[in-house]
């Protein structure tokens, strides 16, 4: 009889994934470098004047964040699938959605959180007016968990396909659209001094909804993929 408690299993899973991720640091650093590079291309392309750059800054940062989320998204479950850990994960004596939520949390910790930390630098490079900074950070803080959760659904669905990368991008980008609309609208509102509570609360609601339902979808997708 295996007596591991739910918390013990979840803790072991998170510890393992963190350890593995820290051994392959390039997977964490590359999307961040990608964000910095794309952001620094814009002043070169549209000119360094603050009037144009400042207006598009929030949108550019958000679109770049979405694209960065797609980079390496197929890796989320791929290694686990190939080495058999995904199969073992299904057999752990813990409800699979709980483990899926742990996976999403790890993904956010390694891709979402660094992006939030990097955002002020990106805002600086794009000359985003200071009034918009706090709102931008708030939308990123609320939005990146949504990105991780949706990415996990897509990655779990395509994990058993040999090369699911392009398909995964096509699958995920439309799902990111509502997030992009509300996040960009919030920052734009902050720049003109309008109240942003509405958009921020909507984003928070969207985050709660996705984080509640995504683990169930991820668990279902994993079961199908491992068959």
């Amino acid at each position: 009889m295996i007596k591991a408690s739910t918390w013990q299993v979840v803790k072991t899973l998170m510890r393992r994934d963190l350890k593995v991720a820290l051994r392959r640091r390039s997977d964490i650093i590359n999307p961040l470098l990608f964000v910095l590079m794309v952001v620094s291309l814009f002043p070169l392309a549209v000119g360094p004047g603050p009037d144009v750059l400042g207006r598009i800054a929030a949108g550019v940062i958000w679109v770049t964040a979405l694209l960065a989320a797609l980079l390496g998204s197929e890796r989320l479950f791929r290694d686990d699938y190939l080495d058999g850990s995904l199969e073992q994960m299904i057999l752990l004596p813990v409800p699979l959605p709980v483990l899926a939520l742990a996976k999403i949390a790890i993904h956010w910790l390694l891709s979402g959180l660094p992006l939030v930390i990097l955002a002020p630098l990106a805002a600086l490079l794009l000359k985003l007016p200071v009034e918009g900074w706090s709102t931008l950070l708030l939308t990123l803080l609320l939005g990146t968990p949504i990105l991780s959760a949706l990415t996990a659904i897509g990655a779990a669905l395509t994990v058993s396909l040999g090369r699911g990368g392009a398909l995964l991008s096509l699958l995920l980008l439309p799902l990111f659209i509502p997030l992009l609309i509300f996040a960009a609208a919030a920052v734009e509102g902050a720049l003109v001094g309008a109240p942003v509570v509405g958009q921020v609360v909507l984003l928070a609601g969207l985050m709660v909804l996705t984080l509640t339902l995504a683990p169930l979808a991820v668990a279902g997708a994993i079961r199908v993929s491992v068959n």
């Binding site: 393992r16 350890k19 593995v20 051994r23 392959r24 190939l82 080495d83 058999g84 199969e87 073992q88």
Partner: peptide, 11 residues
């Protein structure tokens, strides 16, 4: 224990 060992190659 199936065909794939479930061993993490980085560890």
């Amino acid at each position: 224990i199936g065909h794939k060992p479930g061993v993490k190659s980085e560890l």
